[in-house]
Write a protein that binds this DNA or RNA. Structure first.
Lengths: 332, 332
DNA sequence: CTGAAAGCGCTAACAT
DNA sequence: ATGTTAGCGCTTTCAG
């Protein structure tokens, strides 16, 4: 492996016999050139394999043409799809999307974002970070948007309304004839209270019971671990809602291992509509939270802010109920 | 939102009444200071909310303390887990991992990597990129490692041996008594021929048939679309291997929709051992390719190269057969 | 222990 | 159309 020094604008200028300013203008297509200069430049650049150093460029322009996206857990397909959406839009518009994974550790958020921020023109950040970091972000010298609503801060937010998402699901389940509800939440997430409220808004007026459980991480493994707690009890729920599909899938799987028939003995539903929710057994009823569209919309919003263009209106996306077999019980 | 200018080392120096060199040394903990200076510096930095601009720093040091990871498709849980592994190790060692998604588009690889490369001290790249880009990467002035073996280039590679992975699976399936094999490959991936060869190495000596099909993208949706082609034919295979779990899951799902009993009528197996392979119906037999460990190992390797430290030895990971119900047929 | 000054690779006035 | 020059924010000799 040849560890040759990367060639600079000065190398090109020298080889082509012009000034570095000319090279800069050529590389940035800022004007036209005499045929002679253009030819020399083209071949010098090709010979040297020169390409701009975006960092040096950024130092003077103050722009990076990169946008940062910090997610809680890239292994969660919901976030992976947000990334997909944001990435596509970014690339189409000449931006690079730089993704960092916060590993569900809110403690690590601050240093990660401090490192990411100066490398970007704008930031997209998962909502579940500490208030002081949110405040720091809000005072940053660049546009910031959040995926979900951070606690008690009035900041730019893109996504579905968590209350609405939960209500939508609860309404359907009530219609299906379920009477004893369980919710396995993730209390550390900012959206958890909202989802709970969405459920209660529907269940309390109807006089229906809601038992609440909690997992320590929003994963299928945690869902599996929580299943026994929710199921092996006299007042066992007849439907259990996972705070997201991952958790619901784990719950459902363990329920079957425990000998329960799904949905006959106990039904399950999730939230997110991750791709695999279709393929589990039985296919999981869930609410589509428009993961990819969220990424697209938040990216457009950030770009508009960077470029001082008129900004998109609708930052709240409409969730959609996805009915599958995991809740298809013949009503009693 | 206050769009105040980010404060610089000069602001801190002025406020603390010292030179910028002193601030720099303080921030980088390069020596000790008089109590007076230390106090002034601490409070000035706190007041101003100063933090270093890593780009400016990189300009002079030539180091970024960031490592780039370019994956084909972040929505593929295999890659998501590689990211997890790499990210954890990076963070533990004071590096930042910058992830970019190439969206399964090899055409976009070059510009993406050109933008990413100068922002990093080293690069980790999915193998499936064009030879000229591989060559360009190999001549870069920084360490590069590949996830898998790029076509015909002798470069640093981390991961499992695709031939071995496929052979391992085939051997087990032969032992299980399967006789007519199907493989649904993804011919655009560099590992496809190797996986095919691994299968043939086992099947041909045993005189067993292998029908080969192809998908145009390595996803569950593509697997679903391919299912009919592989199943609705007189010489239908009794076991079908998907080139990865995603494809296998799609195949299996569609097979069941088509009325086949799995594994009684036709069995399925995948490759990767993505988390959801456990939760589909029936649970999918697969080969663990150590996704997370791959990320960890490749990260350690890159760091060692950057820091000129002795490098890890084993860059080839040992795959493990994961036997689940999708192939558990009572042998004929 | 502290500071002055050079310069990383590049762009953006401002000349010519 | 092309060149000169002053920095962007920072680190790093080198002096003091």
């Amino acid at each position: 492996m040849s560890r040759q020094r990367r060639s600079t604008i000065r190398d090109v200028a020298e080889k082509a016999g012009v000034s570095i300013a000319t090279v800069s203008k050529y590389v940035n297509r800022q004007q036209s050139f005499s045929q002679a200069v253009e030819d020399k430049l083209r071949s010098a650049i090709a010979d040297l394999g020169y390409s701009q150093n975006p960092m040096a460029r950024s130092m003077v322009t103050g722009r990076t043409t990169a946008i940062g996206l910090a997610v809680m857990d890239i292994a969660n397909p919901h976030y992976a799809n947000v990334v997909k959406g944001a990435n596509r839009v970014a690339l189409e518009n000449g931006y690079n999307l730089l993704v960092v994974d916060m590993e569900e550790s809110i403690a690590a958020a601050r240093p990660l974002l401090e490192a990411l921020s100066p490398r970007t023109d704008g930031l997209i950040v998962s909502a579940r970070i500490p208030p002081d970091v949110v405040k720091w972000l809000a005072n940053l010298d660049k546009p910031v948007a959040f995926l979900g609503q951070p606690e008690g801060e009035d900041v730019l937010t893109v996504g579905t309304d968590s209350v609405q998402v939960a209500s939508l699901l609860a309404q359907y389940l009530v219609r299906q004839g379920f009477r004893k509800f369980g919710y396995v939440g993730y209390s550390r997430a900012s959206w958890n209270i909202e989802r709970l409220r969405g459920l209660r808004d529907v269940l309390e007026p109807a006089g229906l019971a809601l038992q609440v459980f909690d997992v320590d991480e929003p994963t299928s493994e945690a869902g599996e671990r929580a299943a026994a707690r929710a199921l092996l009890r006299p007042d066992r729920p007849d439907v259990i809602i996972g705070c997201n599909d991952l958790v619901a899938i784990g719950l459902m799987s363990e329920a079957r291992s425990l000998g329960f028939k799904v949905p006959e003995d106990v039904a399950f539903a999730g939230i997110d509509n991750i791709p695999t929710s279709r393929y589990v057994a039985p296919p999981l009823t869930t609410v589509d939270v428009c993961s990819q569209a969220t990424g697209e919309v938040v990216m457009k919003q950030i770009m508009a802010m960077i470029e001082n263009k008129p900004q998109p209106e609708n930052l709240t996306l409409e969730p959609a109920l996805i009915i599958r077999e995991s809740t298809q019980r013949i009503p009693v």
